[in-house]
């Protein structure tokens, strides 16, 4: 049996000690009730089942948020008979109005931090979601895209390596560009680059010089005093006079033609008379032919 120690007895020490114990127990009980309330043990809930292909990032106790506010909590994650993952969510009744028949559920996984389960309800006038309804869960995983991004980056680097490798089309093109720019910086400049060599460029320049001289000579022949242009002008003037003469001749021909047309009006009567005379002559000849000694047998014998 323990002996009571000789502690100095304080005034109302017992009561104060009991008060301290009561305060401590009160704090513990209040904290436990507060935690239970915070975990939604006293809140009415309705069930929601989200179906997805992969449960990575989903854990019991994680929040379902709407516009950043928690409206529910994951209760359980389980495998369905068809291999799909069933995420059972408890949605608080007071927040169930944010869940509509057209709501979309997403699971987003960032590079940093845990996954986030979100609900998006664009049409709040749609009918509310029923208790125990089953909906698909869409996944948006930033880290899942990493292998694809890395593969693409690798492919890009390989392409770059191929482009810049010795003997690659791009490297050859660059070599050609270097050659062309080298020629451009030569004595003949851009012309040397276009013609391929300085000799060819020089030929072209010589041709141009020759053409220039030819043009000067042509100009002299054409436009000098007594040149081709002057001669042509005189010829044209002469041609103009000839045309005037021709116009007069044509007018005279027209007059003659008009006279001829007037004369041809009597030709009809003359022709009738001639035809009548000819018919008379023909009848006379026929008469003579029927007379002896010009008559001949007219019997026709068959062949």
């Amino acid at each position: 049996m323990d002996k009571p120690s000789s502690a100095p007895p304080g005034v109302h020490a017992e009561r104060k000690a009991i008060a301290l114990i009561v305060v401590t127990i009160g704090l513990i009980v209040a904290f436990v009730i507060y935690v239970m309330a915070a975990r939604g043990l006293f809140a009415e809930t309705q069930s929601l089942v989200l179906m997805t292909e992969n449960s990575e990032g989903v854990r019991p106790g994680m929040d379902l948020t709407f516009s950043g506010f928690p409206v529910g909590r994951v209760r359980r994650v389980e495998l369905a008979d068809d291999g799909q993952v069933r995420v059972l969510v408890d949605v608080w009744k007071k927040d169930a109005r944010w869940l509509r028949s057209s709501s979309i559920f997403t699971l987003e996984r960032g590079i940093v931090g845990e996954a986030r389960l979100r609900v998006f309800s664009a049409l709040l006038d749609d009918p509310p979601m029923a208790d125990g309804e089953e909906r698909p869960l869409l996944r948006g995983d930033a880290s899942e895209q990493l292998p694809l991004v890395l593969a693409n980056a690798k492919m890009l680097i390989e392409n770059l390596e191929q482009l810049t490798a010795q003997g690659s089309p791009f490297a050859n093109a660059l070599t050609h560009v270097e050659t062309v720019t080298g020629r451009m910086s030569g004595k003949q400049g851009v012309l040397g680059a276009v013609m391929g060599s300085e000799a060819e460029a020089k030929k072209l320049i010589d041709t141009l010089d020759h053409l220039n001289r030819l043009l000067a000579q042509t100009e002299r022949r054409l436009f000098a005093s007594g040149g081709l242009a002057d001669t042509s002008q005189a010829t044209l003037a002469e041609l103009h006079g000839l045309l005037a003469d021709a116009r007069g001749s044509l007018k005279r021909a027209d007059a003659i033609l008009a006279d001829v047309q007037g004369a041809s009006a009597d030709l009809g009567a003359l022709r009738a008379e001639v035809e009548m005379s000819l018919r008379k002559t023909s009848r006379l000849i026929d008469e003579i032919n029927r007379k002896w000694p010009f008559s001949r047998p007219t019997e026709i014998s068959p062949p």
């Binding site: 323990d2 009571p4 120690s5 007895p9 304080g10 020490a13 017992e14 104060k16």
Partner: peptide, 13 residues
């Protein structure tokens, strides 16, 4: 014992 415990508790506290 209870009294002594209470007194000890309060003294220490």
């Amino acid at each position: 014992v209870r009294r002594e415990a209470a007194q000890c508790l309060w003294t220490d506290a």
